[in-house]
Design a protein around this nucleic acid. Structure first.
Length: 582
DNA sequence: GTAGGGTTAG
């Protein structure tokens, strides 16, 4: 129990607190201070200036600091911190600069704040100078500063530096662990994030809700359903308060791990839902091809939810594209201006993708011409090219591909798509030509891989993978499986061999594509079970694998769920939820 | 006469 006497502020201090972070009441309070003869009281001016920054009026605060004859270190570091917190990183750096220029003593507070400001700006050079300066002034082993620097380097994608700092901290706080987990997760290194989470358990550091939010995001990214469920259990059994952050993370994790209904259960149960929660759920439906559900939820959101933002529209348009809901998508796009949202490349891309997938190539081209201001970016042409390939419009495809290659000559995937189009139209001579250019220019294709999680361990397969312990059994099992599906009517789609150029490392061995290996391994290891097989692929699934897995789901009588680069495929009884639309 | 570092959606 707190036995200290209640604190009494002066009436002047109270009038500042009463004004709060609002500029015009603050200015009035300032005037009263001057009239009452307190215009030079440093604590009062400090409080006033800090509140002014919190109100967004950094220049006003800067003048107050510069005009004060005995402005001190406390005032300037408070202002640095207030600006960093308010999301005014430029102002934070300016206050830090003022501190430098006045040669006042530094505190660790100024460093944590300015490090955050540099992180927000991804300003690596400035951040490195701040780091060096902090060491110089003896704050090199301050735990708060170290943690803030981990965040800085993570935001600048310098994970090795971040990790070195992390490893150097003695007695790491839960915040330092969280920063490291989130650093990996934000940089697409979900597996590393999960490793850090596990190390944290070994180190017996008690996780908090931020740990779980960051770890659930890593699970969502990696498709690590088992760990995601474990985290959920800890949240529930620990009777943790499911904040809007945790709730959104749970919705996102379940949606991206393939359990869209579980995601919806959490969504419905949450006490608080914000625009992120709603957007996650809509995006979840979109990924699973449930376009109508996505649209329904979007309409509900417009009626009784938070105001949709630009990301919401990315999710809605992608959902429409993946479900063939052209008029719904067009309406949604048109309604963006109601919310004063300006479409970005992603929105344009989804629109082109939507028309293109639906086979409306002319509408797609017309949209590019009439609705996109300025020169369309490469993403837009890539979507257009994908549509040409899907609907076998070779002439337009070649034209678009050439435009794209001129725009981005070093990007291998454009050439791969072009060669695919030549291959599909039977122009093998052109295929060779494109391939040779790629070899000469040393343009490497992206390597495809598939992941399957069994008993909490992730197994990674690349095409023709032979490094797995059970390689022989897996290949044998896959051979038998291919025989059985062939008996059931499966004929390899040789067109897809040419996908190899894009999706996998070599062009033969269609039968050993990574997703086939992963699915075969999953089936082999869970014979007798009825649980669905879940596989995650980093690229798009190819046509032949799609066909083969449909047959596998029926001959093995198992549900097989594949998450590819863009969406989910739920295979059951020889059919796929995507209805050949992906 | 005071204040810190970490978190969610495409």
């Amino acid at each position: 129990m707190d036995l200290s006497p209640p604190r009494h502020h002066s009436p002047e201090y109270d009038s500042l607190l009463l004004a709060g972070p609002r500029l015009s009441p603050l200015k009035q309070a300032h005037a009263r201070l001057i009239v009452a003869g307190h215009g030079h009281s440093l604590p009062l001016v400090t409080k006033l200036a800090t509140l002014a920054v919190a109100a967004g009026a950094a220049p006003y605060a800067y003048l107050l600091a510069a005009a004060h004859p005995s402005c001190d270190s406390f005032m300037l570091s408070s202002l640095t911190r207030a600006a960093a917190r308010r999301g005014l990183p430029g102002a934070a750096i300016a206050f830090y600069g003022r501190l430098l220029a006045t040669a006042l003593p530094f505190s660790s507070y100024a460093f944590t704040a300015v490090a955050k400001a540099c992180a927000d700006l991804s300003a690596l050079r400035t951040g490195m100078a701040v780091h060096a300066h902090s060491i110089l002034l003896g704050f090199g082993s301050d735990r708060f500063v170290q943690t803030a620097l981990i965040v800085l380097y993570s935001k600048c994608s310098q994970l090795l530096v971040a990790r070195r700092l992390f490893d150097a901290i003695r007695d790491r706080s839960v915040v330092a662990w969280n920063a490291m987990i989130s650093g990996y997760e934000q940089n697409g290194l979900a597996e590393r994030a999960i490793e850090v989470y596990r190390e944290m358990q070994v180190a017996q550091v008690v996780p908090d809700s931020t740990t779980f939010v960051a770890t659930l995001s890593a699970c969502a990214q990696a498709g690590a359903l088992d760990l995601g469920r474990e985290v959920e259990r800890r949240i529930v059994s620990g009777q943790m308060d499911v904040t809007v952050f945790l709730g959104s993370a749970l919705v996102n994790m379940y949606a991206r791990c393939g359990l869209v209904n579980k995601a919806r259960n959490w969504f419905d149960r949450l006490q608080e839902r914000n625009v992120v929660t709603w957007t996650s759920m809509i995006a979840g439906y979109g990924m699973h091809g449930h376009g109508h559900e996505a649209i329904k939820l979007f309409h509900l959101m417009r009626r009784e939810g938070p105001t949709p933002n630009d990301v919401t529209f990315v999710a809605v348009l992608a959902a429409c594209a993946h479900a063939g809901l052209v008029s719904e998508g067009r309406d949604a796009f048109d309604s963006m201006k109601v919310y004063e949202l300006v479409p970005r490349a992603e929105h344009y891309c989804s629109m082109v993708d939507m028309y293109g997938r639906a086979g409306l190539l002319d509408d797609a081209m017309q949209f590019i011409r009439d609705s996109i201001p300025g020169e369309p970016g490469p993403e837009v042409w890539t979507a257009m090219l994908g549509a040409c390939k899907m609907h076998k419009n070779f002439n337009l495809g070649v034209e678009v591909a050439e435009r794209l290659i001129a725009l981005e000559p070093e990007n291998p995937s454009h050439r791969v798509l072009l060669s695919n189009i030549y291959a599909l139209s039977g122009k093998m001579y052109h295929v060779e030509k494109v391939r040779n250019v790629m070899i000469n220019r040393r343009l490497k294709k992206q390597i495809g891989y598939s992941l399957i999680e069994l008993g909490g361990t992730a197994h990674l397969f690349r095409m023709g993978e032979k490094s797995h312990q059970q390689t022989r059994e897996i290949y044998q099992y896959l051979e038998e499986l291919i025989h059985r599906i062939s008996d059931a009517g499966y004929v390899p789609e040789t067109d897809s061999v040419l996908h190899d150029l894009e999706e996998e490392e070599r062009e033969v061995a269609l039968r050993y594509h990574s997703e086939k290996l992963a699915v075969a391994y999953g089936l082999m290891m869970s014979r007798g079970s009825t649980a669905p097989i879940r596989v995650i692929k980093n690229l798009r699934i190819c046509g032949d694998c799609h066909l083969a897995i449909k047959f596998m789901s029926s001959v093995e009588n198992r549900e097989i769920i594949v998450r590819d680069k863009h969406r989910f495929h739920h295979f059951k009884d020889g059919k796929c939820s995507c209805l050949e639309y992906w």
